[in-house]
Amino acid sequence: MTTRPRRDPHAERARTVLGPSGRKRRLPPGPVRPRKDPHAPRAHAMPGPSGRLRLDPHGGELVHLHGIAPAPAAAAEQPLVVSAPSCLVLAVLDLPGGRLEPADLGLLAAARDLADRLDGAVLALTLHGRHDLARQGVDRHAALELDPAWNPDAATAAISAVIERLAPRHVLFTDHPLLGADRARRLAVASGLAAAFAVHRLDESGLRARGGGIDLVGPLAPILTLHDILLADRPDATLREARPVQVDLPPAPAGGIEDLGEIPVDLTGAPLSEADLVVSAGDGVRDWLCFHDLARQLNGTVGGSRQVCDRGLLPRDRQVGASGTLVAPKAYLAFGISGAPQHLQGIEHCQRVVAVNTDLHAKMIERADLAIVADAQAVMPALAALLRERRHG
C-alpha cells in the first residue's frame, strides 16, 4: 500500500516571501512558474486593417510564425481623373455674395449627372474668385476675377470667352431671375445659341421645360437654365481633379449700366417665397409691438403660423406652411411656434432654423438648428436691444 507523504509546515513557512503590498505570500512547493507580463503583448502589437492596434497574446510568436508584416500606412486618396472626355458640360455658378449656395451645389450635381450620361467632364466657371470644388463633382475649373460691381456685359463677355476657348457642348445656369437666368438670356442673345429655360427634367435624350403654363418637350439645347426641382440634389463627395483651366479675359466692355451699390430696402413685407430671412410668430407671441420692432431691426420678412393668421393677428399672405407659403430662406426665426406638421412641411427647405419656445419637447425645438428654451416675450426685447447697441456702437 502506497502512502502519500505528509506535508512539512516548517518547510512551507521557509518558502514565505513578502509580496508587492508588504504582506507575506507563501510560495507553493516545487519550481515556481514565472508570472506573465501583461505589458509584453503591446510590444508586439500591429495595426489592423482599420488602423487600430491588434494585440498578439502569444508575445509575437504568431506574427513571426506566419510571417505577418505590419499593415502599411493608408495611401493618400487619389483624385478621379477624366483625361479624354467626349465633351464638356459647363456649369456657371451664381455665387451670390461670393458664397457657394445650395443652388450652386445643385447645379454641379445636375452637370455631373449629365456629363456622366454623355461620357463627358464637368467644367465649372466661377466669375468672382476660386473655390475648392474638388469634392463637388468638378473635373475642370475656370476661375475668373471679375470686378465685384454688377456688370452684366462683362459677365457675358467672360462666359463667351470660356465657350470660345473650351467649346462645351452644354452650358448650365440656375434659374435665378437676377443671376443665372439673366446671364443665360444675355448669353443666348449675344451668341445666337438656342436656349431652354426652367428645365425641370433633363437627360441625354432630351428635356422638359415649363413655359406659358405648359410643359415644353424637346432636344437638349446648348444653353439651359435649371428649375429648382433639378437643383435639390448634392454632388457626390468623391475626390476629383478640378484641374485649373486658364482663360484670357477680354477687355471689359464699356457698358451702359453703372452699379451704384445697394440701397436699404424694407423687407418686412416682402413675399415670403423670396425672403432670405423670415421672422415668424406663433401662439406663444403676445407682445406684437416688440415682435414687429424686432423684425424691423433685423430687416426680416414677417411670417406666422396658421393659428395666428386665423385669429387675424397677421394677414393671410403671411402664413407659413403647407396650407400657406412654402419658404426656403437662409435663416428662419420662429418665436412661440410649437411646430404643427403643416408648418414643418412649409419650412422643410430652410437652411437654418432658430426656435424660441418654452416647451423643451416642442416639435419646432426638435427641428431647430439652434433652440432657445425661454419665453419669446423675454428674448425678443433683449435681441432688439442688442441689435440697437451694435448698430449705434
Rank of each mutant, 00 (worst) to 15 (best):
T3Q: 05
P5D: 06
R6Y: 12
A11S: 13
R13T: 09
L18S: 10
L27T: 06
L27D: 12
P29I: 07
P34I: 02
P38E: 07
R42I: 03
P47A: 10
R54D: 02
R54P: 02
G59I: 15
P72W: 12
A75L: 07
A75K: 01
A76P: 01
E77W: 07
C87M: 10
V89E: 03
G97L: 11
P102K: 12
A103H: 08
L105S: 10
L107Q: 02
A110I: 03
A110D: 09
L114Y: 07
L114V: 12
L114T: 11
D119F: 11
D119Q: 13
D119W: 03
D119A: 15
D119T: 13
G120T: 06
A121P: 15
L127I: 09
R130F: 05
D132M: 04
D132I: 01
G137P: 07
A155C: 08
A157C: 02
A158T: 05
S160L: 13
A161Y: 06
R165P: 08
R165I: 00
L166R: 11
A167I: 00
L178E: 15
L179P: 03
L187G: 02
A188Y: 06
A188W: 06
L193W: 01
A196E: 07
A198G: 07
L202V: 06
D203G: 13
G206W: 05
L216E: 02
G218D: 02
L226D: 00
D233V: 01
Q246A: 15
D248P: 06
P250L: 12
P251W: 08
A252V: 14
A252I: 09
G255F: 04
G256K: 11
G261N: 09
P264M: 00
G269I: 00
A270E: 08
E274H: 06
S280D: 00
G282M: 01
W288K: 09
L289H: 09
F291N: 02
R296E: 03
R296P: 03
G300Y: 01
T301R: 05
S305T: 13
Q307W: 06
V308R: 03
V308T: 04
V308P: 04
R311G: 12
G312H: 01
Q319V: 05
G321I: 00
S323W: 04
L326T: 14
V327H: 00
K330H: 13
Y332M: 12
L333R: 02
A334N: 05
A340N: 02
A340P: 04
E348I: 05
A355E: 04
V356K: 14
L360W: 07
H361L: 14
K363Q: 13
K363Y: 09
I365N: 12
E366K: 02
A368Q: 06
L370Q: 08
L370K: 10
Q377A: 14
P381S: 10
A382L: 14
A384M: 00
L387F: 09
R388Y: 09
E389G: 08
E389D: 13
R391F: 01
R391Y: 00
H392N: 06
